[in-house]
């Protein structure tokens, strides 16, 4: 019943007993007529794909076949446990048991119901539910991740948060939530100065060094000691004004460092873990998404939590 896909270097090779699995997808399909005459019934195939924790992770697909009355029993039990109704209405009994339309509707409803069950923390690790899905009892399930909108082939470019105004705005909101807006404001200030083409040394000192770079400055950025010493480069200059060429050589070590930190630390969390970004994306056109990503988006796969 169970097929394992490439068990490459499972995370906990030493302690395989800790079976922590996240549900990756759950699909009800392949209705099949079994038996004849009065005993005839329709069964539905339930395929639950789980991701076993580890890196790289192992994917396991569990298959199980159930009929209408099995679903009914599970549904009643789940309703008792949660003492509330589900959004999906349980399909009523019908005499036209083998009507194709009816079967398709039931299949759909069963799938939505099961998704609601696994989405409910009270039910997720219920033994009857696991038994129903043919998932071993000792497996500890964790909820599916909520990233439903992004096809897995999409790669978001960090540069998009610097270039695209809407992305920039969204990323800044994220940084404010993480209490980390300073590095971005530093980049914006540097960009502003570069756009002007020149700046009085005095102004530069006030707007950049005293604001972002010096120890204890009000919006101090997190850079190493050597990079921080961009002020030293500055003090060797005897001019009153700095021009574009100079500006770049003075600012680049710090802006590069800051970009790198944002790119490697904040940006992945922004893209993969921040719910608001998902909402933002779901309101966007494909063209917009293409403009902020590399490669072409996958055709949307149904009901996969990626």
């Amino acid at each position: 019943m169970m097929k394992e896909q490439q068990p490459v270097e499972a995370f906990s090779s030493k302690n395989s007993s800790s079976g922590v699995c996240r549900i990756f997808s759950l699909v009800v399909g392949d209705p099949m007529k079994e038996g004849k005459g009065l005993g005839a019934k329709t069964t539905y195939l339930i395929q639950t794909e789980v991701v076993k924790s580890g890196f790289p992770e192992t994917r396991i697909v569990y298959n199980s076949r159930k009929r209408y009355s099995d679903f009914k029993l599970l549904h009643d039990e789940c309703r008792k446990l949660t003492s509330s109704d589900f959004k999906t209405i349980f399909p009523p009994k019908s005499f036209k048991k083998f009507n194709e339309k009816l079967i398709a509707e039931r299949k759909e409803a069963f799938q939505h119901l099961l998704l609601e069950f696994v989405d409910n923390p009270v039910l997720l690790n219920n033994q009857n539910l696991k038994l129903f899905l043919s998932i071993p009892a000792q497996t500890h399930l964790v909820p599916p991740s909520k990233h439903k909108d992004i096809p897995s082939s999409v790669k978001f470019k960090f540069s998009s948060v610097l270039k695209n105004e809407e992305m920039k705005y969204t990323f800044k909101q994220f940084l404010i939530e993480e209490h980390n807006i300073e590095p971005f404001e530093f980049l914006e200030s540097c960009f502003q100065i570069q756009k002007q083409g020149s700046i009085l040394i005095e102004e530069f000192d006030r707007l950049v060094i005293q604001e972002f770079v010096e120890h204890g400055s009000s919006r101090e950025i997190n850079i190493d000691n050597r990079t921080r010493n961009l002020k030293n480069t500055l003090s060797t200059q005897t001019d009153l004004v700095m021009w574009n060429g100079q500006l770049e050589s003075v600012l680049q070590p710090a802006t590069n460092a800051v970009k790198l930190h944002l790119k490697t630390d904040s940006f992945p969390r922004f893209v993969y873990n921040w719910p608001t970004f998902k909402q933002f994306l779901s309101s966007k056109s494909d063209a917009f998404i293409a403009s902020i990503t590399k490669g072409s988006p996958d055709s949307q796969q149904a009901l996969i939590f990626v």
């Binding site: 996240r22 580890g54 890196f55 992770e57 978001f156």
Partner: peptide
């Protein structure tokens, strides 16, 4: 995160990790 089953599902996140290791 790892021992609570929060891993890396997104293929792209994995590719980004390649870059971070190489960086």
């Amino acid at each position: 995160q790892f021992f609570h089953g929060v891993g890396i599902t997104h293929d792209q996140e994995r590719i980004e990790l390649i870059e971070i290791v190489r960086l």
